[in-house]
Simulated assay, not measured.
Amino acid sequence: MKDKQLEDLYDFIDNSAHMLSEQEDILYLDALAEVGDRLFTSKMVEIHDSFQKKKLEKLYQSITFEDYEQEIIRKALQLAVLKGMKGATQPHHSLTPDAVSLFISYLVNKVLNQPKPYILADLAVGSGNLLTAILNQSNKEIKALGFEVDETLLHLAYVNANLQKHEVELFHQDSIQKLPNLEADLVVTDLPIGYYPNDVVAQDYEVKALEGHSYIHHLMIEQALKQTKSGGYLFLLIPNFLFQTDQSETLHQFLKKESVILGLLQLPSSMFINDNQAKSILMLQKNGEGVKQIQQALLAELPSFSKKSALADMVNQIDRWFQSELKLS
């Protein structure tokens, strides 16, 4: 039943975006955001072609949007965003894979385990897929904040939050620029990779390059720690080569000074086209009163997410690590 719901909702969203894109001569992703806005207000997009309009109306009649679970909505939108990104030319347009989003949600639930409200921030929220996946998997009261410099992606994040009925405060902003003090309990971000062009702004960072442009992923890690409260946690998707570059020693020293490096979980290599694109999950806890050094960092190479038995064994090992090192069950 859920597979049928997902297929029907995706078909409607995809066809609506495709028709609107052709009619208005706009990018598929921009059309997708417009379709999402219309869905939220229970309106169909206006299609001039009568044949296409009838086709769309038939698809619309096959869905009962109010009955759909949040995860069905998120996955349908994710599939459409993925399609749009394949046709986009912007290199910064990418989407956190679904299995990774759900695995990070599991890690988040390990540390947000108290009956109190939390503040969660994503400094590169993109289309909102990672952030809403975390919110869908949590039963905690969470104030969610998202920052995104790309206007199209921010619009999609807005649509994602609205359609899944999540209150998310979104900012159209380069998060390397000065931010208000967020005092976040947790920062979760799929880091953008590359050089940051504004050397003047980068000068305010300890991890800046001594010459030339600084790495944006280094600057964002420092910003993430600045925006996390003492004792708060960070789960950051980083490139596997993070600690192997000419600027990595400065970053490593900064991390040791400002945080406890809890662990590094390498994602399955089968998820990536080549080694240069491979990523890991860096787990940090910001230093502060009551924060203790751990005996053993969690270092592991995750098995393929399709190998359920091996993944279950890994999760059991991670559960035991959280219990022994952080006293979190």
Rank of each mutant, 00 (worst) to 15 (best):
K4H: 12
Q52I: 03
S127C: 12
F12E: 07
T152I: 04
N139D: 15
Y205T: 09
G194M: 06
K229P: 00
T41I: 07
F12T: 07
Y28L: 02
L39E: 10
L59R: 05
I193T: 07
N181A: 10
K226C: 00
K279F: 11
S42D: 15
Q78W: 03
L29I: 08
G288H: 01
A161Y: 09
S306F: 13
L219E: 03
D11T: 08
Y233K: 00
P97I: 12
A297Y: 09
L219C: 04
A133T: 12
V35H: 10
L59N: 02
D313R: 12
I73N: 04
L210S: 12
Y118A: 01
Q247M: 07
F322D: 08
V315G: 02
D150C: 00
V188Y: 03
E69H: 14
V108T: 14
K257I: 05
K53V: 01
P115A: 00
E167K: 09
A144Y: 04
F322H: 09
Q293Y: 13
K256F: 11
L82T: 01
L191I: 03
Q323S: 12
A278D: 12
G128Q: 12
I238H: 08
A157S: 14
K4Y: 12
L163Q: 06
G146S: 09
E66W: 11
A80Y: 02
E258H: 12
H217Y: 04
D275W: 09
F40E: 11
S214K: 03
A144I: 01
Q323L: 10
V35P: 04
D8I: 03
P180E: 15
K54R: 11
A161I: 00
K86L: 08
I119Y: 08
F235C: 05
D199T: 14
L219Q: 05
D185P: 04
Q317I: 04
L262T: 06
L112F: 15
L179R: 14
T250L: 07
L163H: 02
